[in-house]
Design a protein around this nucleic acid. Sequence first.
DNA 1: GTCTATAAGCTGATAGAC
DNA 2: GTCTATCAGCTTATAGAC
Lengths: 202, 202
Amino acid sequence: MASRQPRPAKETNATRDAIVAVADRLFYEQGFAHTSFSHIADAVGISRGNFYYHFRTKDEILEAVIASRMQATHDMIAAWEARDGSPAGRILCYIRIVVGNRGKIMRHGCPVGTLTGELAKLGHPSRPGASAIFGVFRGWLSRQFTLLGHARNADALAMHVLAFSQGVAVMDNAFRDRAFVEREVERMTRWLADVVAAPVEA
Amino acid sequence: MASRQPRPAKETNATRDAIVAVADRLFYEQGFAHTSFSHIADAVGISRGNFYYHFRTKDEILEAVIASRMQATHDMIAAWEARDGSPAGRILCYIRIVVGNRGKIMRHGCPVGTLTGELAKLGHPSRPGASAIFGVFRGWLSRQFTLLGHARNADALAMHVLAFSQGVAVMDNAFRDRAFVEREVERMTRWLADVVAAPVEA
DNA sequence: GTCTATAAGCTGATAGAC
DNA sequence: GTCTATCAGCTTATAGAC
């Protein structure tokens, strides 16, 4: 089926990858709307014109960035599953992101939450794609709660954990209060222990 | 001291007020960076040039918008205090914003949280001004918890309530799941009842 | 594959007529 | 006070040389 001569189209392209990596970082640090081709070109070390060999529009770069973040999300989850065999331990890995990534969150917020919010305001067609990254965490967390014996409330519990992380991220970005973050993580850890201890619902 | 002839400088200006009101709405709906003078001018019904009689720069409009939101925040809190005499009832007023304003939050997020986040990404000088609105809620909630006998943890409890509202706002914006919002508000209401019932700490 | 040169449009901002 | 006309600069995007 696949023609073999011109190149399988899956060949790695160093420049394209560099553009996506830099755009990923700048979209996170400065926002999508405020990041121009010039910003990205300067950081990558290429000319503005060279962009259009790899991408036709700015929106296409955004799509590639979202796809890259989606892949990174799956990789992170796979790493948690390889490291920790218990569902509770894995959920804790998620809860503790707000501590592990605190420096970046403090300055630029949660990468998923801020991108989803910005694309919502822009009425951007890639908004569902960004929200889908939240969806991956939601589904995965839900599966962990099901394994803990909370099949009936698994999705609600997953959403509660997601809301926790977003609330902490927004407040840390606004106030940069380290004690607050640690307090909320401890509170959530106790909450998780209670959920684990009561696997049967009324 | 105050000269009386040219006008006390506090005179109401209908055009200026209209600019601020429209900018307030558009900054919320579309974001600050993505809202141009043309957008505002078209919505107000004036020319682009007329702007500079009332404001010298776009940042000055933002400052006026933040000041206006700050005033609206104080007014809202005053209304809660006039309507509900109990500290717990007042805190509940705050908790229930995510239900009362759900339509707008779903589409554009929390006005305070999204503006603070955007200004952080832009490295904008008005970021502290936007965060100060959060600060007003924080201080006011803290005072309510103090009245409930939780003086020592008042600020931590206030921050927990703020984080709740931001977490729910971000997730509602991403998933638009009404049942989730109502569930989280009920959970928070039960939490508040527990806090009220245990006014003495270990 | 990367570059330079260029286009058309929008941006915030200014000057001056009315 | 509001307007029109205008500015320089930046934006995304294209064409074509190398």
